[in-house]
């Protein structure tokens, strides 16, 4: 209990420090509404993928194939969207085709998730290896389908998703909030969610308590797959294209964002709220440095540094608490 408590506190302090630093360094630019809106456009890609990474991590697993899943399902959506009929369609027809394409993309993402889940839950492969193999294979399939090229040029309805806003809130950000809401609902308010946490801590005791571990793991990886599919919608519509290797550098960053948000690397602990705060911190560092005209790569370095810092502070707090007892 105290463990999670301290990490959220540390995160909030880090967030305040980041806001203050950026404010001082960039002046009013940082607190400008326009900056917040642009942050809200940028955050969802990494954000939704991080949710997709977080859920398997709670079961003490990992899903290295989230990006590859997103790319493949994005490519399939793109293939449908760039077909003759969909480009010639207009009005409602066009919207229906876009919706259909997204649905097909989701089904594929869910299917890939289910296959991952089958390998991990039923064949009992180590998650890191099963999803690594899956990542390489999916990536290969994407390359074969696209011949390594970019697929681009979508109907307007698709592009709207990435660029429109509702009441000033960008649609991608709304999608992130919806995903976070659903994940939070599943984790906190469904039997499956409770089981996910319990399996992450001790699968054997869950098995002896009549929990259908295999089924729970299968659902976990399916959910992770579907979230990758949502990320695919955001990515393809924002880039107006799909490709086999988009966003590959995000993979380990999703692990970074999850752990920074308090997800335990050994499973069983972690909350959506923590992950959201972690995403906000990371995005603010990135946008702030961007405003100052500093290279994106310094952002990467700072992200790594913040993660280490938070983990070290957490370690020291725990050590101090142990000493007091």
């Amino acid at each position: 209990m105290t463990r999670k408590f301290s990490q959220i506190h540390v995160l909030l302090i880090v967030m305040v420090v980041v806001i203050l630093t950026m404010w001082i360094l960039t002046g009013s630019d940082f607190l400008n509404p326009g900056n917040f809106q642009s942050m809200a456009y940028q955050m969802p890609e990494l954000g939704i993928l991080t949710l997709a990474m977080m859920i398997p991590m709670l079961t003490a697993g990992i899903n290295l194939s989230i990006i590859a899943t997103a790319n493949l399902s994005g490519i399939v959506m793109a293939l449908i969207l760039t077909s003759e009929t969909s480009l010639q369609a207009s009005g409602w027809q066009s919207i229906l085709i876009v919706a259909g394409a997204i649905l097909v993309g989701f089904i594929i993402a869910a299917l890939i998730g289910a296959i991952n889940g089958y390998f991990i839950a039923y064949l009992e492969l180590p998650p890191i290896l099963a999803s690594l193999g899956m990542m390489v294979m999916l990536n290969g399939i994407s390359i074969v389908i696209t011949q390594g090229y970019v697929i681009s040029g979508f109907p307007d309805a698709m592009l709207e998703i990435g660029s429109a806003d509702i009441l000033g809130i960008p649609v991608p950000f709304l999608l992130l909030l919806i995903c976070a809401g659903i994940v939070s609902l599943v984790l906190n308010w469904t039997p499956t969610g409770t089981r996910i946490y319990m399996i992450g801590s001790n699968p054997i005791a869950c098995f002896y308590s009549g929990v259908n571990n295999k089924n729970v793991l299968l659902r976990t990886y399916m959910l992770s797959g579907i979230l990758s599919g949502v990320a695919a919608v955001v990515m393809t519509s924002r880039f107006n294209s799909a490709k086999a290797d988009y966003g590959e550098s995000y993979l380990l960053l999703t692990v970074l964002a999850s752990v920074l948000g308090g997800v335990s690397a050994s499973g069983g602990f972690g909350k959506v709220s923590g992950v959201l705060i972690s995403l906000i911190i990371l995005q603010m560092v990135s946008s702030g440095l961007n405003l100052m005209g500093i290279s994106n790569f310094l952002t990467l370095a700072l992200w790594g540094f913040i993660l280490l810092l938070v983990m070290i502070i957490k370690f020291l707090i725990e050590k101090y608490q142990q000493k007091r007892h």
């Binding site: 409770t194 946490y197 801590s201 001790n202 005791a205 869950c206 308590s209 929990v211 069983g268």
Partner: peptide, 26 residues
């Protein structure tokens, strides 16, 4: 037991499916 998790979570582990509202939420 799932020793790192709470007493409460452990107690309801076998009856989770009965702990729901009509909408299948806890």
């Amino acid at each position: 037991l799932v020793t790192t998790q709470s007493v409460g979570q452990n107690i309801i582990l076998t009856t989770l499916d009965q702990m729901t509202t009509r909408r299948h939420l806890l």
